[in-house]
Amino acid sequence: MTGELLFASVGVILFALGVAGVLLIGHLLRRVLAFNVMGSGAFLVLVGLAQRNGIADPVPQAMVLTGIVVAVAATALALALVRRLYVLTGKLELSQDDDE
């Protein structure tokens, strides 16, 4: 097992951890954290798996670079919506009524 594959495996674990977090945690700010962990896991799989033969590959690296910047924009947007929701309703969780 190479270091690259090790980090790809970590990425898989982080992604699963993030998905479970997004599904199980009600608090919206914590959900944003879980969503970010999920994204980091996907980035690690993308680069780690592409470089599993030990040679640096600029193509997935460039895509992850793009992805990180988009992820922070998504986080800021999510936080803006969470704060707006809190101003309007005083709640930090989504209501369960729509699920039924």
């Binding site: 270091g3 980091s40 680069v47 780690g48 470089q51 640096a56 690296q61 460039a62 990180i68 910047v69």
Partner: peptide, 14 residues
């Protein structure tokens, strides 16, 4: 993972 570009961006942005 020999990706210093992403490392820089991750430290500053992530």
């Amino acid at each position: 993972l020999s990706a210093p570009d992403i490392g820089l961006a991750e430290a500053a942005i992530g």
